[in-house]
Nucleic acid binder design. Structure first.
Lengths: 231, 231
DNA sequence: AACGCTATCAACAATCATGTCAATAGTAAG
DNA sequence: CTTACTATTGACATGATTGTTGATAGCGTT
């Protein structure tokens, strides 16, 4: 074998991106232990010294990977919002798309990583925070006033978004276990569930009339306020 | 300093449990990197050789920790179910308790760990699966027939449980980010949100009348079916 | 008191992961 | 063609981590 294989010289951007791709693949398959720089570099076709040259250190690579995965998530989120018609979109369709976007293995991996990582590492995320905050504002506003119907109570809209987002994240995280326990069946169940949640929220657009429940006291006496017409 | 400190001799169970406690504390504070056996053993007041003696290996300790955390989760879950009155419990109270139980940092840590760990490690979880499956069956049945009202459609009850569970898990995982983005405010918001979800589900107990929506077609025409009485 | 069991530990060995360094080789610019 | 720049790499240094081993010490039993 020719011990003198020809070197390939990449642009720094290309080197970084192929390294990050290899790292992400390894993370998906081997967990955090898969991120040893030697293995990642080997998968990407270079030596680990080159990896360090580009990312500064092992942690530098991890930070770059987190940022790249977060960017990917944000990108898909933006695409999802953009897909919908300007503001006439139906809620069920939005929620379905939100689930399809958020409840994904790769994103679940990112959330899990950020959750299990010690909070000491601040994960940069400055511009990311701003970006996602703006994104959420758009989403909220779009939900609040749709079609020209009366605007939704902000807190109701907020809780609705929280419900959809948390449920999607939780689905991405817990799907294997939910399936194991028989709570979820085939893959179609995911879609049906998402649609169901969308309808649930749609049916409650009128709760703004009762927004005083949301505003302040946790007076736990009033319990019957909300009973639906009983048959 | 007395170089000849007196040895403490624990029972195997006690040694294991104090080691696991130290490990869990370290996991919470330092993430997976905190699980180096030397550090864990030091926190527990023994040498790392002792740790290996009790768990066989570093991975053995991790498996034991996962199992212990899963047991703790199951235990709290059982306690939660047991707290409620036999079967007359209101849904809001059950959902609130479910959130308080499930959307917890420690449990989120467990879910995150299981998610980011490569699926190759099967995490034992044989009896755990059975236990949680039975638990879920109890929960479902209890929700389906409460108070003597007409029994709920099984699929509606199932989706309701899925919604509550996924949202709770997602809240535990995503809370820091949701707070950062302004979607969640103080800690009270958590409780209000949980109660809100409970009411949402309660208001939809009658969807069984329309269960054909769940069974098959995605005919998305009917939207106004469920508006609550408007004041 | 003598004995057996085993939890405990210090010291050691071996492996692995990270980071450094000096030399090399593409590539573009002069 | 020469030069400058830097991406790339093998070899090495270093520290961290896991696992082993032989001896010791606590504790119950006889």
């Amino acid at each position: 074998m020719n011990s003198r294989t020809k070197r390939v010289r990449r642009s720094p951007e290309e080197a970084r991106s192929t390294l990050l791709a290899a790292a992400r693949a390894r993370l998906l398959e081997h967990g955090l232990d898969g991120l040893k720089i030697a293995a990642v570099a080997k998968d990407a076709g270079m030596s680990h010294a080159t990896l360090i040259h580009h990312f500064g250190s092992s942690l530098g690579m991890r930070d770059a990977l987190i940022e790249s995965m977060a960017h990917e998530l944000l990108g898909e989120f933006v695409a999802m919002l953009g897909d919908d018609a300007p503001s006439g979109a139906r809620l069920e369709s939005m929620v379905t798309k939100l689930f399809a976007t958020l409840a994904d293995d790769r994103h679940a991996q990112l959330f899990a990583w950020l959750t299990i990582e010690p909070p000491q590492r601040p994960v940069d995320a400055d511009h990311l925070d701003r970006a996602s905050r703006d994104l959420l504002a758009v989403l909220l506003e779009r939900i609040r006033r749709r079609d020209g119907r009366p605007a939704l109570d902000p807190d109701v809209a907020r809780f609705g978004v929280v419900l959809a987002v948390t449920s999607a994240i939780g689905l991405g995280i817990g799907r294997p276990r939910l399936e194991q326990m028989g709570l979820l069946r085939d893959a179609d169940d995911d879609a049906r569930f998402a649609a169901w949640v969308g309808e649930l929220l749609e049916a409650h657009r009128h709760w703004d009339a009762r927004s005083e429940r949301l505003s302040s006291s946790r007076s736990s006496t009033g319990k019957e306020q909300l009973k639906p017409e009983q048959r």
